[in-house]
Design a protein around this nucleic acid. Sequence first.
DNA 1: TGCTTATATAATTATATTGTTATATGATAA
DNA 2: TTATCATATAACAATATAATTATATAAGCA
Lengths: 114, 114
Amino acid sequence: MKQVAASVGEVATVLKLLGDKTRLTIMALLDHNDCCVCELVEIFQMSQPAISQHLRKLKDAGLVKETRKSQWIFYSINKEHEMYSLIKNILAHIPDQQEKLKELEEKGTRILCE
Amino acid sequence: MKQVAASVGEVATVLKLLGDKTRLTIMALLDHNDCCVCELVEIFQMSQPAISQHLRKLKDAGLVKETRKSQWIFYSINKEHEMYSLIKNILAHIPDQQEKLKELEEKGTRILCE
DNA sequence: TGCTTATATAATTATATTGTTATATGATAA
DNA sequence: TTATCATATAACAATATAATTATATAAGCA
């Protein structure tokens, strides 16, 4: 099961970022669907700046990417990240979070830009 | 690659514990060899209480076990931990740490109780 | 018993983290 | 242009974390 070895410090940095329930759940959501900030605010019932700050940490580490689509900014997983395979391994250990997005769809607050 | 799913909170707690360079390296060392506190103190060039406190966090979470062998207390990985497979996955992503123990052996400060 | 070694715990300090509120920025729409 | 919506940033407060020093505990040995 040996993989490409990043440095201990680099791995610790990623684990610390994912060692927060909110950020870990965000990553689990983004792993299957891009989301904009306001959707995450609604899902987590948390202030918009709190979500923005979590996203910034993830973005600064290169774990997520952002794309503006008119008035919204969509965040997505950066599959090119050096440690993406580690992240996939970790996400495989947590329950599926997609039902949270389904609830938004049912409430009509899911935002889809095409 | 789907595994048994622990709760998001449980996984986040483990990741936060491993999201510290010292603790992550301790886990990597213990994954191959049991170690006593004084060996870790020497390896990390850190105060004994600092090491003890890291070990206590790992022990409180059930990630490691301790066994007294006369005057020393040896720590070992708890392979029965619910998230041991996740931990193995993570450790597979960092470089081997065993050379640190080899250095102790060469200096004659490795402690082996049989 | 009293001394030494190994480890744990308590108290403290410095720093980091996470959330909140207030404000700024940037895009869209009237 | 002005108002509005989505998001980011700044300032701040509360809490958590990690290290240090000092002290306690527990085992082994003279």
